[in-house]
Structure formats: structure tokens, C-alpha cells
């Protein structure tokens, strides 16, 4: 095949399409991110992956006033302001996004070995800081996602720094290579390393729904679903997406709810019916603390200071 290990690049007027053997991706210029991640005909995205900065307030966060001190990260987590998109196809950097009429002279098919698209966000904090999310796609369809948070000394400590993926349907479960159980930076000494399977998307049944389900130090994660929202898809054969570490292990949680949904419930049964999969891949996670629940902060070494840059990466559809 002529295009083995090469990407087919589809220059659209609002998107950039990339496809290859068993994958097809659409990057939106209007919506601030990856709009479609299709593997073997199955869609993996409900909405564009976005930076995430909030975790559902834990009892200890509430007791220590962390949720109040850091409340602006809730807004930054809920709404996203994309201020720039930067595209490089092989070695060609586009000063301007390539839509008509620029692309009228392009041929089809166009192939490339490497495509890099960087979205720049301005956080809805006061003051604002910047976050970039770069997707780098190779000919095998592997997407290396790199997130960079630019530290700002006038901002409050962060609950989490990561990327949130919302998938169209509830996963059957997931398998990961990392640490046993639910772990946080200050609560992972007791975990054992290994490969673990989790059935479904269990929400830890804390009396008041709160941040839960984090897995630190993960090398690889495979999420398996068997349903889509595509009305013409009649199959219930399971299908999977694999995420692997790039330079460093990552942290993740895989739940049916966003932090905001968890935040809104005072009891487990108030959570909405589970209908999607919410994956958070995090580069920095705040500890949970435990000294007391009425004032003591998480130990300082387990904070995420806002003035320090956070950069992390991982590979989607890793081979």
C-alpha cells in the first residue's frame, strides 16, 4: 500500500481530518480540540477533550476551605476559552489555518508522516494564565497529547491539572497497568504494582459524592466499550482504546461523571443515570490529606502550586 505509515490529510474548511489504517481523526478549528477520534469505525469522543482543573470537593477540601480558596479553578474547569491554534504538517508550519481559499490548490489525497496541532487556552481565572494542548499524530495513528500549564504566582493552588475526555457511552470496564486501588500522591504507599481489571465504572460510595477513583503512576490503560450512539451501528462487540505513558507514568480516573456532576450531588443516588464515560488523565494530582476534616490542609508536598509549570504527555491509541 502506498500510504502505509502515512497519514491521509483532509484539509477541510473548519476542521482537519487525519486518517489511516483503522483510524480517523477530526480536529476542529472552531471547537478548540479533537472533535472525533474514530477507531475501526467506533467514535470515542462525545465532546472535545479539554483541560481539567477541578476535582469534586472532598470532605477534607471543604473542611480546610480549599474549595473556597481555589474556587476559580471550578470556572476554569467548566468553561474553556481557546485563543489560538497552531498547525504543522510534516515540516510545514501554517501561519494561518489552512482553509479555502488557501487549500483550493491542494490535491487529494495529501499524505504526511507527522501532524502537530496545538491549541492554546486562556484560563478563566483572575489573572488568567495559559495552557497549551498539543496533539501530535504519526502514521500509525498514535496521538501524543502534550499539555502544558504555565504557572502564575497570583493564582491559588490547583485541585488537578489534566485532560478530560468524555466518551459517548458507558464503558464496560477498563484494564490498567499501575497501582492497586484508589490512590493519591499522599495515599499510595500501600498499593501494589500490577495489572488490574475494573468492571464497569464504579464510583466510590463516599457518603457525599466527591473526588474518587484516581489511579496514580499508571503505565497503560485500556478502556473497553460495546455500544455507540451511531444509529446504524448494530454491533455489541467490545472495542477498546489504549492509552500509554509517554515519558512518564500518568494518573487517571475513569468514571461516569464529571467533577461538576459529582459536585452537585449530596448523595450517590442523586447522581444522574450513568450514560457516558469520563476519563481524566492527569499530570498533577493534589493529595487528599487526612490530619483532620475541619481545617488541616493537605501536606504541602502534595499541593499543586499554581506558580509552577506543569507539563505532561501520554499517547492515545498507542500501539
Amino acid at each position: 500500500m502506498a500510504y502505509t505509515n502515512k497519514l491521509r490529510v483532509i484539509y477541510g474548511d473548519a476542521t482537519l481530518g487525519l486518517s489511516g489504517d483503522g483510524f480517523h481523526y477530526i480536529f476542529s478549528y472552531e471547537r478548540g480540540g479533537l472533535e472525533s477520534l474514530k477507531l475501526n469505525g467506533k467514535e470515542w469522543l462525545y465532546r472535545e477533550p479539554m483541560p481539567t482543573f477541578w476535582r469534586a470537593t472532598t470532605d477534607n477540601d471543604r473542611g480546610s476551605g480549599f474549595n473556597i480558596r481555589s474556587a476559580q479553578w471550578l470556572a476554569a474547569d467548566t468553561f474553556h476559552k481557546c485563543v489560538g491554534i497552531d498547525l504543522t504538517v510534516d515540516n510545514q508550519h501554517f501561519a494561518e489555518l489552512p482553509i479555502a481559499p488557501i487549500t483550493n490548490e491542494f490535491s487529494d489525497p495529501v499524505s504526511a508522516e507527522n501532524v502537530k496541532i496545538k491549541y492554546t487556552f486562556e484560563t478563566l481565572t483572575v489573572p488568567a494564565t495559559q495552557v497549551t494542548v498539543t496533539y501530535e499524530v504519526n502514521g500509525y495513528g498514535e496521538i501524543k497529547v502534550m499539555m502544558h500549564y504555565y504557572g502564575h504566582e497570583d493564582l491559588p493552588s490547583l485541585p488537578v491539572v489534566g485532560m478530560r475526555f468524555i466518551m459517548p457511552t458507558v464503558a464496560n470496564g477498563f484494564d490498567y497497568q499501575g497501582l492497586s486501588g484508589e490512590t493519591y500522591p499522599d495515599r499510595m504507599a500501600g498499593a501494589t504494582e500490577g495489572t488490574f481489571h475494573v468492571d464497569g465504572l464504579p464510583v466510590t460510595k463516599y457518603l457525599v459524592p466527591q473526588e474518587n477513583g484516581m489511579h496514580m503512576d499508571t503505565r497503560a490503560l485500556t478502556i473497553t466499550r460495546d455500544s455507540t450512539q451511531n444509529n446504524a451501528d448494530h454491533s455489541r462487540e467490545p472495542f477498546s482504546l489504549t492509552i500509554k505513558q509517554a515519558e512518564q507514568p500518568f494518573a487517571f480516573s475513569c468514571l461516569p461523571y464529571t467533577a461538576e456532576e459529582l459536585e452537585n450531588a449530596t448523595h450517590i443516588e442523586e447522581l444522574p443515570l450513568a450514560r457516558r464515560t469520563v476519563l481524566v488523565v492527569a499530570g498533577a494530582v493534589r493529595g487528599v490529606g487526612g490530619i483532620d476534616s475541619w481545617g488541616a490542609d493537605v501536606e504541602e508536598q502534595y499541593h499543586i502550586p499554581a506558580d509552577r509549570d506543569v507539563e505532561f504527555s501520554f499517547v492515545l491509541n498507542a500501539k
Binding site: T58, N60, P185, V288, G290, S293, E299, Y302
Partner: peptide, 15 residues
Amino acid sequence: EYMHDMGNSDGGMGS
């Protein structure tokens, strides 16, 4: 009494 285990807690026990 120590390590108040309300909700998602028990972090920092090693200290």
C-alpha cells in the same frame, strides 16, 4: 484519635 477518615481521606499517614 488521628487520621480523620471522613470521605476520601487518609492521605499523609506516612508522616
